[in-house]
Amino acid sequence: HHGSGALAALHADGPHAGLPVTRSDARVLIFNDWEERKRSEPWLRLDMSDKAIFRRYPHLR
């Protein structure tokens, strides 16, 4: 199991509170979210491209 239990660094406060600090933090969040959702949506594709990251977390651009 590759990303399970990996912890992402999140901004503690300010405008980005609760959001990932780096792209690799964002990838951890996206992976964990996908892993949760694919139980009920097995067709869901995992997209951890930069484009997917920016779409979801525009502050990382």
Rank of each mutant, 00 (worst) to 15 (best):
D47T: 02
E36V: 10
T22S: 09
D13Y: 09
E36G: 06
D47Y: 03
K38D: 02
Y57G: 01
L10Y: 12
S49Y: 01
R55S: 12
W34T: 15
R61D: 07
G3D: 09
L7N: 09
F31N: 02
W43Y: 09
I53H: 02
H59T: 09
L10N: 15
A52C: 08
W43D: 13
L60K: 00
H1V: 10
N32Q: 13
G5E: 10
V21Y: 04
A52H: 07
S24E: 13
L29C: 07
P42L: 03
I53K: 15
I30A: 01
L10F: 05
R56G: 02
L7G: 11
W34K: 00
E41S: 04
P42N: 04
R61E: 07
A12K: 12
S24Q: 13
L7S: 14
H1P: 11
A8E: 04
D47R: 02
F54W: 06
K51M: 09
W43F: 10
A6G: 11
T22W: 14
R23A: 10
A52T: 15
M48V: 09
I53S: 00
H2C: 15
H16V: 04
A26E: 00
L44W: 05
R27V: 06
P58K: 02
R55Y: 09
L19W: 04
D13G: 08
L44R: 05
E41N: 08
F54A: 07
S24M: 13
L60V: 00
M48E: 02
A12I: 11
H1E: 12
S4I: 14
E41F: 08
R45D: 08
G18K: 05
H1A: 11
A6R: 14
R56S: 07
H16N: 09
E35G: 05
D47M: 03
H11C: 08
S40L: 13
F54K: 05
W34Y: 09
L29Y: 02
P42F: 04
D33E: 14
K38A: 14
W43S: 10
W43C: 13
H16G: 03
S49L: 02
A6I: 13
S40Q: 13
H2D: 08
S24W: 11
G5R: 14
V28R: 11
F54N: 12
L19C: 09
H16T: 05
P15S: 05
R39P: 09
F31E: 04
L29G: 01
A17S: 07
S40D: 13
D25R: 02
K38G: 04
R45Q: 13
G18P: 02
K51I: 11
R45H: 09
D47S: 02
P15G: 03
S4N: 10
V28P: 00
R61F: 09
S4F: 15
H16D: 08
D33W: 06
R37S: 05
H16F: 14
R27L: 07
P58Q: 02
L7Y: 08
D25G: 05
L19P: 02
K38C: 13
P42M: 08
S24G: 15
K51S: 11
D25A: 06
A8C: 09
P58T: 02
G14T: 03
N32F: 10
P58M: 02
K38M: 07
S49M: 02
R56Q: 09
E36I: 13
L19N: 04
D47H: 02
D25W: 03
R39C: 13
N32C: 12
R23E: 06
R55W: 07
S49G: 04
K38N: 07
D25C: 07
H16R: 05
R55L: 14
L7Q: 12
M48L: 14
P58W: 01
V21N: 04
H59L: 00
R55A: 14
R37W: 02
I30S: 00
L19M: 06
R23L: 15
A8S: 05
W34Q: 00
G3M: 14
Y57H: 00
D50H: 07
W34I: 01
G3N: 12
